[in-house]
Simulated scan of single mutants.
Amino acid sequence: MPGRVALIACESGGDPRFADALGLTSATLHAGAGLVTAIRWPLPTDHALALAGADPAARPLQEAIRAIDTAHESEDPVRALAGWQRERLTAWRRERTIEHAPLVWGAFTTTTG
């Protein structure tokens, strides 16, 4: 198991329908990962966001995936991901457009073992 794992799949970071809401994350940590980034709810695709009115050139989900990958490559992935999320929060407060909404960037959580 790699030391840092990103589970970029809908609700990979929690499913309240089961007794262990962090099942996949816990399993990954128990298999040897030291850090797991996962998603707490289903995410819209970039296409779905465009249909909802986002700038057609915007790629919020792709940007999020790249930000997580970059964070996992950094010395302090938690700090790097939190910094990116704060940048997204600033953009959301400034722009108030769907491509900056916390619907995507707020979904990610990182757990350490």
Score class of each variant (00 low, 15 high):
Pro102Gly: 14
Ala19Asp: 13
Ser12Ala: 11
Gly14Leu: 10
Gln62Ile: 10
Arg88Ile: 02
His72Val: 14
Arg66Tyr: 08
Leu24Ile: 15
Ile68Lys: 05
Ala21Phe: 08
Ser26Val: 05
Ala38Val: 07
Gly23Glu: 06
His72Tyr: 09
Arg17Phe: 07
Ile39Phe: 09
Gln62Asp: 12
Leu51Lys: 09
Ala31Pro: 02
Ala19Val: 11
His100Gln: 13
Arg88Gln: 07
Leu35Pro: 05
Phe18Asn: 10
Arg59Trp: 00
Pro16Asn: 11
Leu43Arg: 07
Pro77Met: 10
Asp76Gln: 12
Gly32Trp: 04
Ile98Lys: 04
Pro60Cys: 15
Leu43Ala: 01
Gly23Ala: 08
Leu35Phe: 10
Asp20Arg: 02
Asp15Met: 11
Gly32Ala: 01
Gly13Asn: 02
Glu63Gln: 07
Pro16Gln: 02
Thr28Pro: 07
Gly23Trp: 05
His30Lys: 12
Ala71Thr: 09
Ala82Pro: 00
Thr90Ala: 15
Pro56Phe: 01
Gly53Trp: 00
His100Asp: 13
His30Glu: 12
Ile98Ser: 06
Ala19Tyr: 06
Leu103Gln: 05
Ile98Cys: 05
Gly53His: 00
Ala54Phe: 03
Thr45Met: 04
Pro16His: 07
Ala80Tyr: 01
Ala54Met: 03
Val36Glu: 05
Ala52Met: 01
Leu51Phe: 04
Arg94Asp: 15
Leu89Met: 10
Ala33Phe: 05
Trp105Glu: 04
Val36Asn: 06
Glu95Ala: 10
Ala21Asn: 11
Thr97Ala: 08
Glu11Thr: 00
Ala52Asp: 03
Ile39Ala: 11
Glu99Asn: 04
Pro44Trp: 01
Arg40Ile: 08
Ser74Ile: 13
Val36Leu: 06
Gly106Cys: 02
Ile65Met: 15
Ala57Glu: 08
Thr28Arg: 03
Arg40Trp: 03
Leu51His: 07
His30Gly: 08
Trp41Ile: 08
Leu43Val: 10
Pro44Ser: 09
Ser26Met: 02
Gly13Arg: 06
Ala27Ser: 11
Thr37Val: 07
Ile39Gly: 10
Arg96Pro: 08
Gln85Ala: 13
Ala38Tyr: 01
Leu22Ser: 15
Val104Ala: 01
Ala57Thr: 12
Ser12Gln: 01
Ser74Lys: 03
Asp20Phe: 07
Gln85Phe: 11
Leu35Ile: 02
Leu29Cys: 03
Ile39Asn: 09
Ala58Arg: 05
Trp92Asn: 12
Pro60Leu: 14
Ala27Tyr: 07
Ser74Leu: 09
Val78Cys: 13
Ile65Cys: 15
Leu35Ala: 06
Asp69Phe: 12
Arg79Ile: 13
Arg66Pro: 08
Pro102Ala: 13
Glu87Met: 14
Ile39Pro: 08
Gly53Ser: 07
Leu49Tyr: 06
Arg86His: 12
Trp105Gly: 01
Gln62Asn: 10
Ala101Trp: 09
